[in-house]
Design a protein around this nucleic acid. Sequence first.
DNA 1: TTCGGCTAGTGACATTTGTCACCTTCAATT
DNA 2: AATTGAAGGTGACAAATGTCACTAGCCGAA
Lengths: 198, 198
Amino acid sequence: MKILLAEDQTMVRTALASLLRLEADYEVDEAVDGAAAQQQLQQEHYDILLTDIEMPHLSGLELLQWVQQHQPALKTVIITTFNRAGYIKRAVDAGVSGFLLKDAPIATLIDSLHKVCAGARVISNELLLQALGQQDPLTEKERKALRLAGQGMSTQAIAEALFIAEGTARNYLSEAISKLHANNRVEAARFAHQQGWL
Amino acid sequence: MKILLAEDQTMVRTALASLLRLEADYEVDEAVDGAAAQQQLQQEHYDILLTDIEMPHLSGLELLQWVQQHQPALKTVIITTFNRAGYIKRAVDAGVSGFLLKDAPIATLIDSLHKVCAGARVISNELLLQALGQQDPLTEKERKALRLAGQGMSTQAIAEALFIAEGTARNYLSEAISKLHANNRVEAARFAHQQGWL
DNA sequence: TTCGGCTAGTGACATTTGTCACCTTCAATT
DNA sequence: AATTGAAGGTGACAAATGTCACTAGCCGAA
């Protein structure tokens, strides 16, 4: 079983890789971010891609979409810190084989990998139910505006970045604030981020 | 050598603990957050406390201060995700024996622990220099106001939370914005957070 | 064609946020 | 006692943000 592990935090990556290598018949390669993983996947054949979500250059979710299009036979397992409905939904939509929280002990990870090897899908019902819970109510434009606002950009700067009038940008933000029942753009951005919608 | 490992992410904690246990003569206990670690320290004797910073209930830095007062002989090592000058400064002030970024490979952690056992201090010069770089220019009031603002609270809500007039709250924020060369409260809060000042 | 109904976008207005000059208060100095 | 200066606090004004009624364009149905 050849595994590619994509995770940007070096200590976590090296620790997980060391432990997986202790298991019989696991060969583990490491990638420092999504982009590196994508390159590596094109050069060698792997059985399983084990990846974090929040990484620079190319997020785990973006990587998943790429895999789905270019190497649909490759099995994928997500390990992530954040229990965000939006993440789970997008991962499931991209045909992921496993979805694990870093909140689980390492034994669970190893166990899940065995199951995935055997052809099973391991996503807890609890997580799946959550994903079906709230749908993301934001439009693409609203999402973009909100993301920039959350970083402290002014309405004017946001308008320029999105090639729209200032008033329009304010409108998008206002809509987003209202949809998310927030009181201002910062609250709205925080909430949306928490839900994995940004 | 008896080690207490405090880290809230279960997968990381169990993975590190497993690896450390593979080393000869390390006995490792685990604590799920700062508060749990503090309790455990009172019940048993440890040689080294290895702790994360960002944890619920009691942060690693708060834990350090407690250790300094109650068990000054205990050696402490910080492992943290974030390279924030404020963190390093506070850790050094609290007499830490080691400061490592999760950006380093696991081998470095093991190596550093050995050195700390032997009585050395392991904090890279690079990090120390950084810590001496910028000083936190915020007053306590400014810091509190900025923290709340960063969470999306309105000026009025902040004023109520801090028992001050609305105008005063705006003043604190304005001062903070100016000191940090930001354009608005959100940018200021992000920057301060990045520096480890919140 | 004409009529909705939908989405994208705009501008005017009210509210909130940011700035600044200016009070207090209180302790240290003369 | 008078003076100074620092820290906490206030209020008035300008600028940015949030809201809302509205226009323009673009389908698809009658």
